[in-house]
């Protein structure tokens, strides 16, 4: 063993050996086989050096995974910190709106209709005489719920469909890809106008379901590409040779290695889904009162925008800040997870 030491690259210590012995528990160490085993070891110890030639490997003893690397990068990214704090704040507002406001968004006084900001009511009143500040605070819940659950839904459905298509290929791939093309062929806003306008009761969950149904092909395409790339890697061949079945290959080997691009696209999509919900509500096919939503408020305020701009500007401002926070988060995550951009 010691004679092998000089050949080894500096940054990769015993760690690689333990990895090796776990992957090949019965490495032959006897007779003529020993040389072969050593050669193999050498190759494997060289390999990680070449493939992960990032600066990070050189300055630390233990090679880190993509996720640790990304997390390290994120912690030092001011954009991530700012958007993270904003998002935590928004989530608190969405869960506990009562903490920030004592008046109810549905308690309105017509005599104050369209009044501007006064003390105690910093954002003024809308046409129905409701407190715009209260409505802005309570509106966070609808937007964030739709954004988060639509993203989770599309990511889940898209990953499953795209993953199956990419993993099995052949006819299944052809079928899933064509189905994805069909849903991709309906522009989402047009589809919203048609589908949601014929559904009489539109709760938050209907809107979420609609976005998932029309939004999954975007993720599926990314997932399919990532899975096809991962499937051709040597570690998958190795795992298959060791007898791993399809489910194990998919869940343990391919999924973790194709997750990064999916997460990136999904995080950026979150912001656009919030914007989409507001646009649908604005067009009158999204959420309906008494649900308090920024889109509904902006839509209602639009007609009298010239006389009472505060009714539109405050909920619109809150909406923009929310979308901005999520898109900034998506940008930061992409920069961290996509080593090509570094």
């Amino acid at each position: 063993m010691p004679d092998q030491q000089p050949n080894k690259p500096n940054g990769v210590p015993d760690d690689a050996n333990t990895e090796l012995s776990s992957a090949f528990p019965q490495t032959p160490t006897l007779g003529a086989m020993e040389v072969e085993g050593m050669l193999e070891k050498e190759d494997l110890t060289h390999a990680p050096e070449q493939s992960t030639e990032t600066v990070a490997v050189a300055d630390r003893e233990v090679p880190r995974s993509l996720w640790q690397d990304a997390w390290r990068e994120l912690r030092h990214n001011p954009i991530f910190i700012i958007s993270g704090i904003l998002i935590i704040f928004l989530i608190i507002v969405a869960f506990f709106p009562g903490l920030f406001d004592s008046t109810s968004p549905l308690k309105c006084d017509l005599s104050k209709s369209q009044n501007g900001p006064t003390s105690g009511h910093p954002f003024g009143f809308d046409t129905q005489g409701c407190d715009v500040y209260a409505r802005t605070i309570y509106g966070a819940r609808a937007s964030i719920t739709v954004g988060v659950f639509a993203t989770l839904g599309t990511a889940l459905l898209g990953t499953i469909m795209g993953g199956l298509a990419g993993f099995f290929g052949g006819p299944l791939d052809a079928v899933i890809s064509r189905i994805a093309d069909i849903f991709f062929g309906i522009p989402i806003l047009l589809g919203g106008l048609v589908f949601l306008s014929v559904i009489p009761s539109r709760s938050i969950w209907i809107v979420v379901a609609f976005i998932v149904v029309l939004g999954w092909p975007q993720i599926a395409r990314i997932a399919r590409g990532a899975v096809i790339t991962a499937r051709q890697q040597d570690y998958v061949t190795a795992a298959r040779a060791l007898g791993a079945g399809n489910p194990r290959l998919m869940l343990r080997h391919i999924l973790p290695n194709s997750l990064a691009p999916i997460i990136v696209v999904a995080t950026i999509a979150l912001g656009t889904y919030i914007s989409l919900e507001a646009t649908l509500s604005y067009l009158g096919v999204g959420l309906k009162p008494p649900t308090v939503s920024w889109g509904i408020d902006i839509s209602a305020a639009a007609d009298t925008f010239r006389n009472a701009p505060h009714m539109l500007l405050f909920p619109a401002g809150a909406l923009c800040i929310t979308i901005l926070a999520f898109i900034m988060l998506g940008d930061a995550v992409r920069d961290a997870l996509d080593p090509k951009l570094r």
Binding site: Y282, I298, A302, L312, C320, I323, I327, M328
Partner: peptide, 14 residues
């Protein structure tokens, strides 16, 4: 561009 992306079209419009 980041700011423009985060403002929905109808808000920019009005």
């Amino acid at each position: 561009t980041l700011i423009v992306i985060s403002i929905p079209t109808f808000v920019i419009g009005y």
